[in-house]
Simulated assay, not measured.
Amino acid sequence: MNKEKEAKFYELLKKNKELQNIINKEIEKNREKDKIMFSQNKMAALGEMLNNISHQWRQPLMELSSLFIPLEGKINLGVKVEQDEIKESIEKLNDITKYMSNTIDDFRNFFATNKEISEFKLLEQINIAYKLMSGSFKANNISLEIFVSKNPKVLGYKNEYTQVLINLLNNAKDALIQRKIENPKIIIRVKEYEKEIILNIEDNAGGIDVSPLEEIFKPFFTHGKKNGTGIGLFMSKLIIENNMHGKLLVNNTNNGAEFKIITYKKDQK
């Protein structure tokens, strides 16, 4: 190799090394951005969960208050309180505190950090999502209808799948509230096919006025949602498509928006 060719060879090696360093730096930047986005999504989810806890606990706290007000009134008036009355109040108190404790367990399990792939029954995760949001739904008179012909099993990360369900249900709930829809309703349908399982979530809030609709899955995209982070749907799509090798799709129906979660059966990915 003559000196000129050798010089060009080493120059090319130098440029390749510099290019590799630039690529590595960009990869690291993207990783940092992903970490920030995951952190923001987690904080947003935590905020939603705290809001749901407040709805879940409001009614039992009122029931606790109603248990002791009559007893306190009798004591203040010097009226004798019967033993059976005290015993009945204690039994109701135990039931209410047990319910509140179970609520905390539900939320703790939802935020568990275990990332193990497992086979889970879809209806169980739907029920968990509903339990975590039922207080908020009841407070806003939103009805939830669930149609499941079977209870298919899904292979993946069950907590993350539940997080996607809650993200989609929260978005539907917010749209129904903001648009002041009469008789607000959300419908969940589950269908099992030979190779795939499809879960549909449809609301009657009038649909999403974005074109193309897929724009809503872009990071930091917000549309018609106050104080939204714009990462809930983006993260949901990542969870379903990257982590579970499925698909998350959206379309408008005659009533509103419909999200479709497609997951594939074991050995069908």
Rank of each mutant, 00 (worst) to 15 (best):
N114Q: 10
V164K: 07
N127A: 12
A112R: 07
F147G: 04
N114W: 03
K138M: 00
K115G: 09
N109W: 10
L176A: 03
K121C: 00
V148I: 09
K153H: 09
L144F: 00
L122Y: 08
A172R: 03
L176N: 04
N171G: 12
I128P: 10
E182H: 09
V164S: 07
S143D: 00
P152E: 02
I177L: 08
N114V: 04
K173Q: 03
I166G: 08
V154W: 06
R179Q: 01
F147S: 05
N171T: 05
N151H: 10
Y99I: 02
E145R: 03
I142W: 03
F107L: 01
L169P: 07
D174R: 14
S136R: 14
P152R: 02
Y130N: 15
S101L: 11
E119A: 06
I126T: 09
I177T: 07
M133A: 05
E124G: 12
K153A: 10
G135T: 04
L155P: 03
Q178E: 14
M100A: 07
A112D: 14
K153T: 01
N140H: 15
V148F: 03
I142M: 01
K121P: 02
F110S: 06
N151Y: 02
N127I: 05
Q125C: 11
N167K: 11
V154D: 04
K138R: 09
I177W: 13
Q125E: 15
N171I: 02
L169T: 05
E182T: 05
Q163R: 08
E119L: 04
F111P: 07
E145F: 00
V148E: 09
S149D: 14
M100C: 10
R179A: 00
K131S: 13
T162A: 12
A172F: 03
K131V: 06
R108D: 15
G135A: 11
L144T: 00
I142C: 04
I104F: 15
N151E: 06
K131Q: 13
L165W: 01
I166M: 04
S149H: 14
E124N: 10
